Computed example of a mutant assay.
Amino acid sequence: MPISTAIFWPVIAQVALIHAIYFLMLRRRYRAVRAGTAKVSDFWIPAVEPEPSATVARSLINQFELPVLFFVVCILLHLTAGVNYLVLAIAWLFVLSRYAHAYVHVTSNRLRIRQRLFVAGFFLNFSLWLIFAVHLTGF
């Protein structure tokens, strides 16, 4: 596999995480309705999310914030032939940080750990954008 297309494996892994969180949210919502702790009508207004699925819904929202910048920079690095082993390593570390962040978010939801994982992902994402900017300058 050419290194230029290897950048899409971390992208696919990130998309898989998003699908997994969707599945988990649907499962928790279904269980809440079945258990009687929520009604189907509770899900009509997005601001009203029953407790069993609230953290999963928020985690899903998180997957369309910082990861969007990740998707864009991966595509741009591919299009400009900027993919190298450092880029791949950082991309995989970013995805691992997102998996860990999502896991903490939907399980213990310990803010201190979640915040550290978010900050790590933020700096990894920033690093990819910095590498992209340097790549564009030709250095």
Results as ranks from 00 to 15, higher is better:
Pro50Cys: 07
Val87Thr: 00
Val56Ile: 09
Pro46Ile: 11
Tyr85Met: 04
Thr107Trp: 08
Val73Phe: 05
Phe64Gly: 10
Tyr85Ile: 00
Ser53Thr: 07
Leu66Trp: 14
Val95Ser: 10
Ile90His: 06
Glu51Gln: 08
Asn62Leu: 13
Phe71Asp: 03
Pro50Lys: 02
Val56Cys: 03
Ala89Gln: 00
Tyr99Lys: 11
His101Phe: 13
Ile75Ala: 13
Ile75Asp: 03
Leu79Asn: 11
Asp42Gly: 03
Glu49Tyr: 02
Leu86His: 08
Trp44Ile: 12
Val48Trp: 07
Pro52Asn: 07
Leu79Val: 07
Ser59Tyr: 04
Phe64Lys: 15
Ile61Leu: 12
Val56Lys: 00
Ala100His: 07
Val68Asp: 05
Cys74Asp: 04
Arg98Tyr: 06
Phe70Pro: 01
Pro67Ser: 15
Thr107Leu: 13
Glu51Asn: 04
Val95Ala: 05
His101Leu: 11
Val48Leu: 10
Asn62Gln: 14
Leu88Gly: 02
Val95Gly: 10
Leu60Arg: 13
Val83Gly: 00
Asn62Lys: 12
Pro52Asp: 10
Pro52Ser: 08
Pro50Ser: 08
Ala89Phe: 05
Glu65Val: 14
Ser59Arg: 03
Leu93Ile: 01
Ile90Cys: 06
Val95Pro: 11
Leu86Gln: 05
Arg58Phe: 02
Phe43Arg: 11
Lys39Ala: 11
Ala102Lys: 06
Ala57Arg: 14
Phe43Met: 11
Phe70Ala: 00
Ser59Lys: 04
Phe64Cys: 10
Ile45Leu: 13
Ser97His: 07
Val87Pro: 01
Leu93Gly: 06
Tyr85Glu: 00
Leu86Ala: 05
Phe71Val: 03
Asn84Ile: 09
Ala91Asn: 08
Glu49Leu: 12
Ile45Gly: 04
Phe71Asn: 03
Val48Ile: 10
Phe43Trp: 12
Phe94Lys: 08
Cys74Val: 04
Trp92Ser: 12
Ala81Pro: 00
Ala89Val: 02
Leu88Thr: 05
Val48Glu: 13
Val95His: 09
Lys39Cys: 06
Ile61Pro: 01
Ser59Asn: 14
Leu60His: 09
Cys74Lys: 01
His101Trp: 09
Leu69Thr: 15
Glu65Ala: 09
Asn84Ala: 10
Glu49Gly: 05
Tyr99Thr: 11
Leu88Gln: 00
Leu79Phe: 13
Pro46Trp: 08
Leu69Val: 15
Val56Phe: 02
Ala47Thr: 15
Glu65Gly: 06
Phe70Ile: 00
Glu65Gln: 12
Ala102Trp: 06
Thr107Lys: 14
Ile75His: 05
Trp92Ile: 02
Ile61Trp: 09
Lys39Gln: 07
Val73Ile: 10
Phe64Ile: 14
Val68His: 05
Trp92Asn: 12
Leu77Pro: 03
Ile61Ser: 09
Val104Gln: 15
Val73Asn: 02
His105Leu: 03
Ser97Trp: 05
His78Arg: 07
Val68Phe: 09
Pro50Gly: 06
Ala38Cys: 09
Gln63Asp: 14
Gln63Leu: 15
Tyr85Cys: 02
Tyr85Val: 02
Ala81Cys: 01
Thr107Val: 13
Val106Ala: 14
Phe43Asp: 14
Thr80His: 12
Ala100Met: 11
Thr80Gln: 14
Ala102Asp: 10
Phe64Pro: 06
Asp42Asn: 03
His105Cys: 05
Leu60Ser: 07
Ile45Met: 08
Ala38Ser: 09
Leu79Lys: 04
Arg58Gln: 13
